[in-house]
Amino acid sequence: MGGYGDVQMLDENGLRMDGRNPADLRPISIETGVVPVADGSASIRWGTNYAIAAVYGPMECHPRKIQRQDRAVLDVRYNMAPFSTTDRMRPGFNRRSREVSKVTADALESVVLLEMYPRCKVRVEIEILCAEAGTRCVGLTAASVALAHAGIPMTDMVVSVASGKIHDVVVCDLNKEEDNYGEADLPMGILPNSGELVFLQMDGDLSPDEFKQAWDYNMEAATAIHEIMVEALKGGDS
């Protein structure tokens, strides 16, 4: 979280650079069945972000050494395509993508009924084709829809969204400039039916009041995003 120099993040009316109010989300649209060869898939456009998630399985678990006798293994990969960022991203795993893959897996394992498929594997592939800000939230949300589209039993879908702080004002769903110059970022993974959490990270600087505000923004946003997810699944596409 760097300083913002002379970049103006909020105008005199308290509106953000892209014209949003502090509590507003970027435009979100979701489509299912975008990877025809997968067992389930979804794509999300979220601001300029564009992510695709594909689910394969439940299938035989290879290599055998990672097999679990009592439940399925969830194999989650988050990756950014080389052309997804302003400067080209070198292909292959890096420390950041490994960490995002892990926390995404931890979140999804909390809702997928893995016990129903002992000795199996379910593969979840998240590909960021165009990145703006908040790609881990976009990826986790896309993966939830893809799992539901694949018919994998879950207690609930995970809705992931981040709020943060710019110019001492707490705002929901940071865009690229706000993320670069902002002072805090609080991404959460929320179960919309119960309000419980399965994913939580934070970096930056928030007072207890600001933290509460960011938390509440995420909770409200989750309800709105959940509706879009459900609509996409009802779409009846494939």
């Binding site: 060869v37 695709i52 594909a54 299938m59 990756n79 395509a81 593969r123 592939e125 590909e127």
Partner: peptide, 14 residues
């Protein structure tokens, strides 16, 4: 360069 990541099908591996 071409990348075929495991997203593209059940037989493609990481």
């Amino acid at each position: 360069s071409a990348e075929v990541r495991p997203v593209a099908g059940p037989n493609w591996e990481p």
